[in-house]
Simulated assay, not measured.
Amino acid sequence: MFHKLIATAAWACLVFIAYATLSPIQARPKISSPDLEHIVAFAVTGLLFCLAYPRQIVRVCLIVVGSAVLLEYLQTLTPDRHGTLLDASEKVFGGALGIFAARASLYFSHRKRSPQSQS
């Protein structure tokens, strides 16, 4: 049940990011500086996807990094928004940071649970 909740949260987070990225500039939610928003939003998304699909790291990377690049490109097709390479790189960095944090967390929690042999 917990796994499904995390997966649902990951997809919901990605849908919200798509809405915020592609909506008209007036409808865009603003929390703090845009640079920090990009990094944090994709870090949370990367973390959730990695926790939801821990054995599918390649797929997780493709979804998180691919959506960052694709959404930034799609912004260039909207009349009142503009996609930039800097924004895309911030999103990719945030996604990679979230994936790395989840992988580290999973590694250390697995290591803690594993019986260690005393030599």
Rank of each mutant, 00 (worst) to 15 (best):
L51H: 04
Y53P: 00
V60T: 10
R81C: 02
T76K: 04
A88W: 12
T21Q: 12
K91Q: 11
L74E: 01
L36W: 15
F49E: 05
E72F: 13
H82T: 05
P79K: 03
R81D: 01
P24M: 10
F100W: 15
A43C: 03
F93C: 10
T84I: 11
Y73R: 09
L86R: 12
H82V: 07
Q26V: 12
A101N: 04
D87P: 08
F42S: 05
G95N: 11
V65I: 15
S105F: 15
T45R: 06
S32R: 07
A43N: 09
T76I: 09
S33M: 12
L71D: 06
V60D: 00
A104Q: 13
L22S: 03
L71Q: 04
A20S: 15
G95T: 06
C61N: 08
V60F: 09
L85A: 13
Y73T: 05
I25G: 01
G83C: 07
L86A: 14
R55V: 00
P79L: 04
I57Y: 06
L86H: 14
V69N: 02
L48F: 09
A102G: 03
L70G: 08
R55F: 10
A68N: 04
V44Y: 07
G66V: 09
I99L: 12
A104M: 15
D35K: 10
R59P: 00
C61D: 01
V92C: 13
R28Y: 06
G94M: 10
A102W: 13
T21V: 03
F93I: 06
A41P: 03
C61A: 14
P29Q: 05
A102L: 13
I63D: 00
L47R: 02
T84F: 11
I57D: 00
L62F: 11
R28M: 12
G66D: 08
E72S: 03
L51Q: 03
T45F: 14
E37A: 09
R55A: 09
G94T: 12
A88R: 04
Q75S: 01
P54A: 14
L36S: 11
I99Y: 06
H38A: 07
T78V: 08
A102P: 04
K30N: 05
V58E: 04
L48E: 05
L22T: 03
P34W: 15
A52Y: 07
I57P: 00
T21Y: 02
P24R: 15
L47P: 01
D87E: 09
H38K: 09
D35E: 14
L77F: 13
P24L: 04
T78C: 03
V69W: 14
I31G: 00
L48V: 05
A104E: 15
S23A: 15
L36R: 14
A20G: 12
S33K: 10
I63W: 12
Q56T: 01
L97G: 12
I57R: 12
G66F: 08
D87N: 11
T21I: 00
T78P: 00
I39Q: 01
A41H: 11
L48K: 03
L71E: 04
L70P: 05
G66M: 06
A102T: 03
S67E: 09
P34A: 12
P54E: 02
V69E: 06
C61V: 10
V58R: 11
F100S: 14
P54N: 08
G95K: 09
C50A: 15
A27K: 09
R81L: 05
P24V: 07
L70F: 15
F100G: 14
L74P: 02
V92H: 08
R59H: 04
L70M: 15
G46Y: 11
Q56C: 08
S105H: 08
